[in-house]
Design a protein around this nucleic acid. Structure first.
Lengths: 137, 137
DNA sequence: TTATTATACTTTCAATATGCAACCAAATAC
DNA sequence: GTATTTGGTTGCATATTGAAAGTATAATAA
């Protein structure tokens, strides 16, 4: 990231009063309204992923620059938290905050809708290859 | 729309096998994953809007070309249906299909989350100026 | 100790999407 | 007729995304 980008980024961290309206749907979509953000949250919530490389390996094939940007924004919004792995300083561990975990109902609603109306889709998010936490809510 | 646009549009209508994966979350976000689509659905579902101009008038200020594009895509996906107003042939009436109405739980989850975590947001979508259908679900 | 690998990014640049303002066309109102 | 309403489209500048390559640092192997 160049100097301009860094400045712009810091500014956006300080004052994020660029909401389109005070509608809670609009506020939610200001953060979550794109093709990638909720997939990262799905990966943490339903697939127990927590590393940069894990997210990269998901079948939707997010680009690393986009992933980096989304993780940064999610941390700014306090939806995920970022910490170094104490056992391996190369690794970064991304986990959901309470605010992030509270997106579970919205994700479940999307899973239900997606599974109902997309004939080709699996009935579970990415087949829940790792851990099934569907019943936790 | 020019000839190129028309062809491209028709092609996309015929074969929409550009899904990123078969995960239902991913399938849902392929359609709904942007900053505007769910706001249009919110307007129809919670504010009883049904005309192009109504959507334009929402406080988030969608641009008319983007709105036009989203309405087109939502109709292709069978989430909304488009019909001329029989009483006024200038007007077009947009309504939700069953598939569209089934997005209500997802919208409600987003409203709940947005209202909980955005201190500035109203507790109702856009103050539900017109009709309160929050309790229907 | 040096080389290699693992991990998490950043950079570059072309392609695509968005936002803004102006414009257009059909239907209705006056 | 003329003006207005309604639902768009067009052109263009800017922003975002996607793909591929490059970088930085820590861990591991030779």
């Amino acid at each position: 990231m160049n100097r301009i980008g860094k400045i712009k980024h810091n500014v956006s961290m300080i004052k994020d009063q660029n909401k389109r309206s005070s509608c809670p749907v609009s506020c939610a979509l200001d953060i979550l309204g794109d093709k990638w953000t909720l997939l990262v949250i799905r990966d943490i919530l339903f697939k127990d992923k927590q590393h940069f490389g894990d997210f990269l390996a998901s079948p939707e094939k997010i680009a690393s620059n986009i992933l980096s940007d989304r993780l940064k924004k999610l941390e700014e919004c306090n939806i995920i938290s970022r910490q170094r792995d104490p056992l391996n300083a190369r690794r970064v561990i991304y986990t959901l905050t309470e605010k992030g975990k509270d997106l579970s109902p919205a994700l479940h609603a999307l899973i239900h809708w997606g599974a109902k109306y997309d004939p080709e889709s699996n009935k579970q998010p990415c087949s829940l290859q790792h851990t099934d936490r569907m019943s936790e809510t």
